[in-house]
Design a protein around this nucleic acid. Structure first.
Lengths: 298, 298
DNA sequence: GCTTACATTAAGCTGCGCCTTAATGATTGA
DNA sequence: TCAATCATTAAGGCGCAGCTTAATGTAAGC
């Protein structure tokens, strides 16, 4: 009597602000939605959605139905995934969320290669300012995070370790000199990545022999994109704090030099979070394996 | 992609000894089954059922699929039930299992009334020699049991208390006299219900002041149907052990009299077991309520 | 008062899911 | 060797779920 498509249908409706909007989302005409909803309500002999002036809202029964439907749909989806995993196939949608910079520069190439090797894969990469905040959206399989994490009840896997450096360009070093002690930084021009909450102007430094100190910097320039900051540093702007993954090439090529090389900032390791609802598919485990090898060796 | 009907289909197949048999069970022609199975296997790109000479068997993937399918189907069914329960409706299939005698004489009338009052109900009553043994078949909603139960992880509800009596007909009592002490029983003609395992020839008796004794009887007549035994007793055959529910009318009407009225056998209370998989529907809780009131007052 | 967006009813069309029949081949047991 | 049962392929048909278009009614914003 009840069908998977019914579950999908009402779940889609519950996410839409109006029947017309749902119709657009489902790529059908409004009467189709209206009729189908009526039919479903007739079959259940129960009102699921209260449609009033303007927007619509679920009845208590409708809300309960949607809640249960989501569970069942998860089950059905994961069954499908598990069957294809048992067949050893890498296929289906793979939705990856990653931070802007790291995602664009490091994740995207891996995902592209992985997708090419597995023609039946349908990869999606969502770059986000704050990936961790989108965890609860549910619409993702793998989420890449750089840095510390609050304690989450989610499977995570470390892809690579990642130190954070203070760097400056060679030209800047030549022109202005470099600080030898943390407190000397205050006379330099400093740039920071100003992101969401993390206090970017407080640098907890660990020095030789384990000495710890916190350095409050007064940044001259700031940007929420670390790559912009890196570019500024390369242009000789001043001292910036960047991740190892971002500047290791520049350091190796001698374009940038480390500032206070004996002092270290807390690590910001690169981890992959796995969505518990979809984790059983082969495409996901293989992709994470791939990330670990490819990113680990860059 | 995967549909509820697919789940049902393969579940049905897994229970059939051959595709042809499945076709008969599903009321379609063999090609329909063969095709549909092929299509499903194509869609999953996975072999689900190995068909060889004679019978067929599930592949590992097929077995897993069926296992998961059962879970999902349970979910879908119970969702349907819960929705109808929320609408306050009593409808749908109601499968009751009960012992032969009690089921025919006590449960059947209640179920008939309940069904008449709720026209949309589709009641089924399965009378079984040994209801408890059918618990794992899964195909039941309410299971009636009389007597002690091994410890089960199943919701149960006591419907009525039920003592067990030793009885004989008035004519027999007049003709042969009645024993005054347990050990006097041995000189009488005795009948027992010989069922599955319970040792029917050992009567644990509790007498005045809590004296306990076990009486080993040597039955002359035996039958696995308690009602036959009751009829024999009414015919003046001898002394038999019966449940209160069965003979209380005869006792009240003076057709039977209690033997050793000061001694009691362990109670055999009447309980309803509720199938955990289907327990959430309104039809079941209402029916059990009805059983409790109707059977409690007879 | 006009326009715009939304919901709903009615009526009709259509694709296709699922079935059927027909024919073939394989296997088994009498 | 024949009869019976089963599985499968091919070809064709049918029902109906689910869509469309068309028309009507309603509420809201300008």
């Amino acid at each position: 009597m009840i069908d998977v498509s019914d579950l999908r249908f009402l779940t889609a409706l519950s996410a839409a602000p109006s029947l017309a909007a749902a119709a657009r989302a489902l790529n059908v005409t409004p009467p189709a939605v209206s009729q189908r909803l009526s039919l479903l309500e007739d079959r259940l002999r129960l009102r699921l959605i209260e449609r009033g002036r303007g927007n619509l809202w679920l009845t208590a029964e409708g809300a309960y139905f949607v809640e249960r439907a989501k569970g069942i749909l998860d089950n059905v989806e994961s069954l499908k995934d598990e069957m294809s995993a048992r067949a050893g196939r890498v296929e289906g949608p793979l939705h990856v969320i990653a931070p802007f910079g790291f995602g664009r520069l490091r994740v995207a190439p891996v995902l592209a290669r992985f997708g090419n090797e597995n023609p039946e894969l349908r990869p999606t990469l969502s770059l986000s300012e704050d990936p961790v905040n989108t965890i609860n959206s549910g619409l993702w399989d793998v989420l890449i995070h750089v840095g510390r994490l609050p304690h989450l009840r989610i499977t995570q896997r470390k892809l690579a370790s990642n130190r954070r450096f203070l760097v400056a360009s060679v030209s800047y070093a030549r022109q202005c000199g470099l600080p030898q002690r943390p407190q000397d930084v205050s006379v330099h021009r400093v740039g920071v990545v100003r992101e969401n909450r993390a206090d970017a102007t407080l640098w907890p430094l660990t020095g030789p022999g384990g000495i710890e100190t916190s350095l409050r910097v007064q940044p001259v320039y700031a940007c929420n994109d670390g790559e912009v900051l890196r570019a500024w540093a390369l242009d000789g702007f001043g001292i910036v704090e960047r991740s190892e993954w971002s500047v290791s090439g520049d350091l190796a090529e001698g374009k940038l030099v480390r500032v206070l090389p004996d002092w270290s900032l807390p690590d910001a390791d690169i981890v992959a979070l796995l969505n518990p609802a979809t984790v059983r598919s082969l495409r996901i485990s293989k992709f994470v394996d791939r990330l670990a090898t490819d990113i680990g060796n860059t």
